[in-house]
Design a protein around this nucleic acid. Sequence first.
DNA 1: ATGAAAGCGCTAACAT
DNA 2: ATGTTAGCGCTTTCAT
Lengths: 332, 332
Amino acid sequence: MDFKYETAVTLAQVAEAAGVGESTVSRVLRNHGSFSGKTRDRVMAAVERLGYVPNRIAGTLASAGSRLVAFVVPSLSNIVFADVLRGASSTLEQNQHQAVFAVTDYDPAREEALVASMLAWRPAAVMLAGYEHTQGTVRMLRAASCRIVELLDIDGVALDLAVGFSNHDAGCRSAHYLLQRHYGRIGYVGHDLERDTRAGKRYAGFCETLSAGGSPLVDREIHAGASSVENGRLGLERLLTRSPDLDAVYFSNDDMALGGYFHCLARGISIPSQLAIFGYNGLDIGRVTPQPFSTIRTPRVATGQVAAQLVVENAPAQVVDLGFELIEGATA
Amino acid sequence: MDFKYETAVTLAQVAEAAGVGESTVSRVLRNHGSFSGKTRDRVMAAVERLGYVPNRIAGTLASAGSRLVAFVVPSLSNIVFADVLRGASSTLEQNQHQAVFAVTDYDPAREEALVASMLAWRPAAVMLAGYEHTQGTVRMLRAASCRIVELLDIDGVALDLAVGFSNHDAGCRSAHYLLQRHYGRIGYVGHDLERDTRAGKRYAGFCETLSAGGSPLVDREIHAGASSVENGRLGLERLLTRSPDLDAVYFSNDDMALGGYFHCLARGISIPSQLAIFGYNGLDIGRVTPQPFSTIRTPRVATGQVAAQLVVENAPAQVVDLGFELIEGATA
DNA sequence: ATGAAAGCGCTAACAT
DNA sequence: ATGTTAGCGCTTTCAT
């Protein structure tokens, strides 16, 4: 079977059908410049009749102004990035921009390759997660004439725009909370901190605050792989095998914490009396568990929205701190 | 502060710097046609020196062959679509294609608008969820000279390519399983079936099989909103208030089922002896709960991969049934 | 208010 | 093996 590669209707054909010049059609379609109501009607009629769909490839090339926004995110399965994309995509749509994306799997080298390939589309902006990029990535981005937005992190020096919150502070706040509640033998269960540098920053802040408070971290279990509910469960199991006398555990995020929570349920460990659990992200699921999670809620959708807004209005370089909110649940 | 809108380096500049013609540079860059090793080195050196990044906008316009693939998905927060995108995006990348996306929020009218806007990029293919589209959407897609891929559903007539599995059959299989296990008073908890038509097909198949088996559905609770863990919990609570004597409940998917599971945990309802729970999707999280979920695992990532592969190789129109797998967990 | 014509940066014949 | 030359389908001056 063969496919209909009928050449699409072009603006020139519309112009001819409407009996006007090409530029007139262009003006009418973009509602820019002047034209009479009569011509507009004629043009629109022709557009309708022929089923004309403007070719943005050509339009972009001619006007040198791209309406593409490139997202280079570590993962799509991670609800965090899905939320950011969702927030951004509605704002972008409303402003006639298009989202293009690529997934790095938390690999900086892949990020570099993907940024290169994205830049070939001459996007209006490139959106990245966090501050940790290869030299090559930074060089390319600097050389490109597009906006750069670093998302979900503000602990560092921004290349251009940055929208998010301080992961380091989030770690500190979590530690404060636990100390305040008189937990004293605290452990940590996390995933690959080298790759997820934002989790690394939270961990660092958490440990600093614990130490400053006189109750340094007792033990930790760090899984080399990605964050997941399963790894959280496994991590807590291992941690408790080594250090059964912990009274609280900080998880690298809510997914991991949920795994820990399941482990406790399965083993009959009562929460929080025997063991307190503290997470990060404030996922919806943590509000539906039999005991709502103690965690930190991050403004993920808002991060996407604000980032998109700044790009759309071509705002000056700046760092926007959206903050976060500590949720006092029932698990710690 | 102002931004560096330095005009980017063009192929012509590279050609000049390398002392060769434009087409030679083009050939070298695309590794197509013939050129000497010497010239290749000269060209590559110039590319490197100038930091040249090819402009795909121009390239696409000139070659009339787009390497964009447009995804119009109902939701990104739903892990199902994130998985499909993930599967597709790696395959696409390997073949120098780019994914563009837009989110419909399960609204057919938005789908139509977004398809129109996507078509303006002259994509090589448009990927959609399922078969239910507005007349306008179908007309536009038919008129466009691009491949159309309908994902995650094969219960219907495909426009061009379709990759997925039968949701209707999945519903039937689930019912069979429950009947076989001698559950007899069966209920259903679901979300908006009008919008999520695939869930609707499962529901239909499920009910048919139950009736045929002599144990028609006893009661159902359908939440008007989207699927979520919270709505699953709420739904089960309501259902049990009305029909406390059910012995099994089928959920529209694992997210909803997880909510139901949490409800049981919170209320001390023992699973599966007091109440059996059956889900759909086979999410990872369902394997980590204290009792692994009884559910149906769907090939989401594979759906994305296969769809991308077919597009890349411009395969003839066809329907690919990837099937599904029933997982005998501990909840039913 | 409208049309003509010159590009935008590249690819793809067609020469040589 | 390499250069020359038309476009691709628009937008954008610049006339009129």
